[in-house]
C-alpha cells in the first residue's frame, strides 16, 4: 500500500472509531459497522457527513447502498473511490 493510501485508510479508521466511540487500535478492517461497532442509522448519518467534509466529496444517492457501507474495509474502499474520482 502506498503512503497516501495508508494515510487515507488511517484517517477513515480514525473517523469511524471516533463515531463509534472506541480506540482506533481496536477497530479492524473486518469489523461490521452495525454489529461490531454499534453504528446505527443515526451514527451512520454523522459518519457520512464527516467523511464528505474530510475528503471533500459529495455523496450521491447511488452511493447509499448498505453493502458499500457494511464493514470498515468497505467504507475505506468507498472513500478511496469517491476521493479519487
Amino acid at each position: 500500500m502506498s503512503m497516501a493510501a495508508e494515510a487515507l485508510t488511517g484517517k477513515v479508521v480514525d473517523i469511524i472509531a471516533g463515531i463509534a466511540n472506541r480506540p482506533a487500535a481496536e477497530t479492524s478492517a473486518g469489523h461490521s459497522l452495525a454489529e461490531d461497532l454499534g453504528i446505527d442509522s443515526i451514527l451512520m448519518l454523522e459518519l457520512l457527513a464527516r467523511l464528505e467534509e474530510e475528503f471533500g466529496f459529495e455523496l450521491e444517492i447511488d452511493d447509499l447502498r448498505p453493502e458499500k457501507l457494511r464493514s470498515v474495509e468497505a467504507v475505506v474502499r468507498f472513500v478511496r473511490e469517491k476521493a479519487g474520482s
Binding site: 442509522s41 451512520m44 448519518l45 457520512l48 455523496l59 444517492i61 447511488d62 447509499l64 447502498r65 448498505p66 457501507l69
Partner: peptide, 10 residues
C-alpha cells in the same frame, strides 16, 4: 431497512 435517509430516493 435504510442505512441513510437519502437511500429512500434511490
Amino acid at each position: 431497512g435504510l442505512v441513510h435517509p437519502l437511500e429512500l430516493a434511490r
